[in-house]
Amino acid sequence: MTLPAKPIAARLLLALLTSLAALPASAQQPLPRTVIFLDPAHGGSDPGARLSDNLPEKTVTLSFAARLRSALSASGFSVITTRDSDPSAAFTTDQRAEIANHSHPTACLILHATAGGNGIHIITSDLAPPDDSYADTRHAIPWDTAQSASIPQSVALANTLGLALLHARLPVLLTRSSLRPLDNLTCPAIAIEIAPLTPDDGDTTPVSDANYQQQIAQAIATGLTTWRRNLGAPVGVTR
């Protein structure tokens, strides 16, 4: 039996046209997901600060990291975290920095909590930006001052997230400090320290409050979306 030539030719032509029509569509495929590095500080034998009688800092950073991870995933970010439980032996700060530096994230967020102060403290490294003699990328990057080259981007990231938190009506303080692993990161990096919410006229909201944490997480996700948009194209992409 001979196959009909016309229907086959018509089908081939249709397939060709369909594939040609698909070309522009594939060129407009969604941008690769932006990678965010989250480090819930402390863990294991290191409880961090004692926020109340039986609430260590490591518990709050872990619960907040979980909320932030959900908010970021919903906003289209890929998230890498250093822990999603409380292991008996948590990573050291150097190991956390190694994980971050090898994953080339767009932004690194180190999560902390404290019993003092008010609102959210956004901290950037207080290392000095590199001078011209260190601008040559062929130089080895000193581990202790690895963040130095990213200070301008980190300050801009802190400002963007600070604005987002202010828009969410949360008090923000932008400060600088020397902190590990913040100083060892090669990505734009900030530390976010959650303090209790102590309004002038009202009750204090503890850092363990779920609504408070959710509010912060949502504002940070919004801020990072703005940050990604301002960057134009993502720097770090999923590999």
Binding site: G48, A49, R50, E57, H112, T114, A115, G116, G117, H121, I123, D126, L173, T175, R176, S177, S178, L179, A191, E193, A195
Partner: peptide, 11 residues
């Protein structure tokens, strides 16, 4: 006291 900001201020 333990905290990034409070410790940084002391230093």
């Amino acid at each position: 006291p333990s905290g990034i900001q409070v410790e940084a201020l002391t230093l």
